[in-house]
């Protein structure tokens, strides 16, 4: 049986993704959780091994083929633009990718947008026919309009509470985001049988309404 290696994202998505995998008929031991400091776990009895990486890096590991599969948010997939198969919408960790700003926002002379997603932001505003300068930040994006670094931000919004607490409002929705199962191009061929069967199992769980 081919062994499958799966790159899992640390943080927000991890718990939900693991819960999903647990609901298939694969037996994943209880001690495998994010708090364990181990970055890799091998489960030879079910022919799976997992490793934990930063979410933004998941598509890279999969494209290079060191992981056969990966779980990753659509936001990261859009931003990274890697050559991988997008196999399954896992329908977990739903949120929106949005443009936000202060409630009294008006188009300034030189619009500036702060974001963790420079590629998505550039493409989006280009499509809107707006010329904006994009500033890349790696965290605390909501701060940018408050301190005057940028007039708007592009970021993921789930409940909207963080925006609200910082006095910002959602101005436009770029798209809705869920987590996806992705596959390496060669693994998709060479391990087709295993990947298809795992996909079918996950699909079944998703259809029945996963408990996450």
């Amino acid at each position: 049986m081919d062994e499958l290696t799966i790159a899992m994202p640390k943080g927000r998505i991890f718990g939900e993704a693991l819960a999903l995998f647990r609901q298939t008929n694969l037996t994943i031991p209880e001690e495998f959780s994010e708090d364990s400091r181990k970055l890799t776990i091998s489960l030879p009895h079910i022919g799976l091994s997992f490793f934990l990486v930063k979410p933004i890096d998941v598509p890279t590991y999969v494209e290079y083929g060191v992981a056969d599969l990966g779980v990753v948010g659509k936001d990261v997939l859009l931003e990274e633009d890697r050559d991988v198969y997008e196999l399954l919408d896992l329908k977990i960790s739903p949120c929106r990718l949005s443009v936000a700003g202060k409630p009294d926002w008006l188009v300034p002379l030189y619009p500036r947008v702060a974001t963790k997603y420079p590629r998505i932001a550039k493409n989006y505003f280009k499509k809107q026919g707006q010329q904006v300068e994009v500033i890349r930040l790696s965290g605390s994006i909501e701060l940018a309009p408050i301190v005057g670094l940028a007039d708007r931000i592009v970021d993921i919004v789930s409940t909207g509470r963080t925006l609200e607490e910082n006095g910002l409002v959602e101005l436009e929705v770029i798209g809705s985001i869920t987590s996806r199962l992705i596959a390496n191009r060669a693994s998709y061929r060479m391990k087709a049988e295993r990947i298809t069967s795992l996909c079918d199992q996950l699909q079944q769980v998703i259809k029945e309404g996963a408990r996450v």
Partner: peptide, 9 residues
Amino acid sequence: GYSSSLGFP
């Protein structure tokens, strides 16, 4: 064409 030991065609 793909090989099992490389992630790229």
